[in-house]
Simulated assay, not measured.
Amino acid sequence: MLDIVIEARRAEISTGFAVKRILPYQLRRMVGPFIFMDHGGPLNIPATTLSNFDVLPHPHIGLSTVSYLFSGNVTHRDSLGIEQVIKPGEVNWMTAGKGITHSERFEDPAMLTGGELEMIQTWVALPEKDEESDPSFDNYKPDQLPVFTDTGVWMRLIAGDAYGLKSNIKTHSPLFYVHVILEQGGRFGLPNGHSERGAYIVKGSVEVNGTTYKAGQLLVFTKGVDPLIIAKEQTTLMMLGGEHLGERYIWWNFVSSRKDRIEQAKEDWKQGRIVLPPMDNEEYVPLPEGKSKPAGGPPPNALS
């Protein structure tokens, strides 16, 4: 029934800003097209140290970054000239394609002081035909995303299709991405029609087939099974998956089906050939040392 249970690991993405890294994992590189997953927070950030948590301008190729907040806010700036503050329940969907740079900064003390910051960021690998597409960015508001409720269950479909619902977010391959809140005793199942499916426990705990699983675990299920997920307490889940795209290389912030394309992106960044965001171009993250690994392998110093 369960293919694997992945335990989140600690990773630091900026000074003092540690996250729980879920994907990639040595024994399970991807779930459908999802090749990367970080869970940041919950954090209480003093206003005097907000800037320490900033993620400086950095590049991406061959993927879409998907940012989703539970609390707080983050200011996104990219090389397309877009500036967007993302708030809880919204989705920032940035497709890098042939190349984009962006930063993520924490600039609103009024919202964060005394409150919490908590977010999930995933990366969705692109099909080979779209890896060199033009970059794009979209922000989607909560009222643009389908919501379903039932006894003990609240669910928002972030992207793709699941449970008879379809999101308006533009994607490049078959997938689903769902935010679920279960009250104690609430019961929920996996969506049908997708070959690879997983459920990450953001908070709380669940029982599956008589075994209890806790926050910080990603449950990846065997193809074709239809498990019943029962909340042991109030629980938040992020469910994700879809169709596998084939082998992918991932190194730092670069994803590609071709190793040579990763090497080209490394050299382009090192030589300053990738444009910085026009509204945030005075500093950037330098290229780390390391070698590309097929289909994942925890990327060195990966940034959101």
Results as ranks from 00 to 15, higher is better:
Asn192Thr: 15
Asn253Thr: 11
Ile229Gln: 00
Phe221Ser: 08
Leu240Cys: 01
Ser195Phe: 06
Pro191Val: 09
Gln264Met: 07
Val178Gln: 01
Glu196Leu: 14
Gly210Gln: 09
Gly210Thr: 06
Glu183Thr: 09
Ser195Met: 10
Gly241Gln: 11
Leu165Glu: 07
Glu196Arg: 11
Asp268Val: 02
Phe221Ala: 08
Asn209Ala: 15
Trp251Asn: 04
Pro191Cys: 05
Lys214Met: 09
Val225Cys: 14
Leu245Cys: 05
Thr211Ser: 12
Asp226Ala: 13
Asp161Cys: 13
Asn209Arg: 12
Glu207Val: 06
Glu196Tyr: 09
Gly216Pro: 03
Val178Thr: 15
Lys166Ser: 14
Ala199Glu: 02
Val255Ile: 15
Tyr177Met: 14
Asn192Val: 11
Gly185Tyr: 08
His194Trp: 06
Leu245Thr: 08
Lys166Val: 12
Asn209Ile: 03
Glu247Gln: 10
Lys232Glu: 12
Thr211Val: 15
Ser195Gly: 13
His194Val: 05
Asp260Cys: 06
Asn168Ser: 15
Glu267His: 08
Leu165Gly: 08
Gly164Asn: 09
Arg197Asn: 02
Tyr177Lys: 02
Val206Phe: 00
Arg258Glu: 15
Glu233Phe: 04
Met239His: 00
Val220Phe: 07
Lys203Glu: 05
Lys214Arg: 13
Asn209Asp: 15
Ser257Ile: 03
Glu267Phe: 02
Gln264Leu: 09
Leu165Trp: 04
Ser256Leu: 10
His172Trp: 10
Lys259Met: 09
Ser167Leu: 06
Arg261Glu: 13
Val202Pro: 03
Val178Gly: 06
Gln217Cys: 11
Glu267Ile: 05
Ile250Asp: 02
Gly193Thr: 10
Gly160Asp: 05
Asp226Val: 10
Gly241Asn: 03
Pro191Gly: 06
Glu233Gly: 01
Ile262Thr: 02
Ile229Lys: 00
Ser257Lys: 10
Tyr177Ile: 02
Lys223Val: 13
Lys170Met: 08
Glu183Pro: 02
Trp252Phe: 11
Lys232Cys: 10
Gly246Tyr: 06
Tyr249Ser: 03
His244Met: 08
Lys166Tyr: 04
Ala199Lys: 05
Val225Trp: 09
Arg187Ala: 08
Lys170Val: 14
Tyr163Gln: 12
Thr222Lys: 15
Asp260Gly: 00
His172Ile: 01
Tyr200Asp: 01
